[in-house]
Design a protein around this nucleic acid. Structure first.
Lengths: 212, 212
DNA sequence: AAGTGTGAAAAGTTTCACAGCG
DNA sequence: CGCTGTGAAACTTTTCACACTT
């Protein structure tokens, strides 16, 4: 196995990809502190992982370190960005500007990390607008044209559970390739589409198992 | 290994515990549709997993099925609830009622799944109250007393990154055992405390790797 | 000496396949 | 017969330990 899948993309374990994002943040923090070279031990500590795991993760997509010295912060940042497909700004849309949806729009956590939420869609756009959302909120039926026009690839899905699958189908049909899904529903989509479920109640439930 | 860890709790793989929550929801859906018995194949389909995995997951904490027939919906619901520690309502507090925090308070996704957010805490409680939050919002320094008084075990942490670790320390010291952490920071806590990180920007970043 | 890169071992998880029960 | 419960196999991910480079 040469770490290559059929699409020509390097085959990195899913969990390692999550960690790459964490490394990216840690590197940015180090860069802000004028650090220009970092050892796997130090970076691992900042990121909260084992140093051996960090080295293995980085080795999945290249060799960037200097033995005896460590990794150049700036180069490594660039390489991880490139691997994650974050060299250029990704436009994102949000669908379903209800309670949670408009909350996410006002919360600027995505922008801070370099994602631009360029528009939102809702059956009742006025309601969201009146909630103090600044990003343009359009009527639901304009969704498809907008996605095609702007070639948007990423969507945040916050519609009520009962509409989630139907809306997901529309998104995929219009060209969306990745969905961040906040509905507590297992979406069924083609294998070429990536779904990321964020299920807040489920996370709390998971915690409640571990408290004795 | 008899599936028992030192605390006397059955040793269920972490990933299986997440799935138990999904099964619980699926069962509730079936129950609402008057289904009283369900086969592993059917329940697995609803939950979006393989039937063999479902059977293995359930087997970790008991034997509830009848061969040739399937699982009794109601009993299985009770057993999973019990395993997850969800037989009785868990009180939860939220710390940091800023942008995201007050958004989560207005969003009632937790309540719907049976968690009661009984109070929130913030350095500037008035700001959150004026944002239309109905749950009582108290001043930050009342945190410890409240946790002890009500023996709260679960907290949702939404303070800015720079205060996250300090606040987590306070929570743990006051008796919190599980933290749902929305700050993009790896919290360092004792091994008896469970942390669940929900990092929205990280999830988006993960998606961006998979879109070609 | 310090620290990377990496095979190989260990641990964790999923899937298979089938014996056995109702 | 239909479907559960489960060992064993397959696969994935993590950790170890050390050869090797600067």
């Amino acid at each position: 196995m040469d770490h290559q899948d059929k699409s020509g993309k390097i085959d990195i374990p899913k969990k390692a990809i999550y960690r790459l994002s964490i490394y990216l943040r840690s590197l940015q923090k180090l860069h802000a502190n004028q650090v220009s070279t970092v050892s796997s031990t130090t970076l691992a500590k900042v990121a909260g992982v084992k140093s051996s795991q960090l080295r293995k993760d980085l080795a999945y997509f290249g060799q960037f370190g200097t033995r005896g010295l460590g990794y150049p912060v700036e180069l490594l940042t660039t390489m991880i960005r490139e691997t994650l497909g974050r060299e250029r700004l990704q436009p994102v849309i949000l669908v379903g500007a209800g309670n949670l949806g408009s909350a996410l729009l006002r919360y600027h956590g995505f922008e801070k990390e370099g994602f631009e939420v360029i528009a939102a869609f809702d059956a009742k756009p006025d309601a969201a607008i009146s909630r103090g959302v600044r990003i343009p909120v359009f009527a639901d039926h304009l969704l498809e044209d907008f996605i095609k026009e702007k070639s948007v690839k990423l969507a945040i899905l916050c519609v009520p559970s009962e509409h989630a699958q139907l809306t997901a189908n529309r998104l995929v049909h219009a060209g969306i390739q990745g969905i961040l899904n906040f509905s507590p529903v297992m979406l069924e989509v083609g294998s070429d589409i990536t779904i990321n479920n964020v299920d807040l109640a489920l996370e709390l439930e998971h915690l409640s198992y571990f408290i004795r």
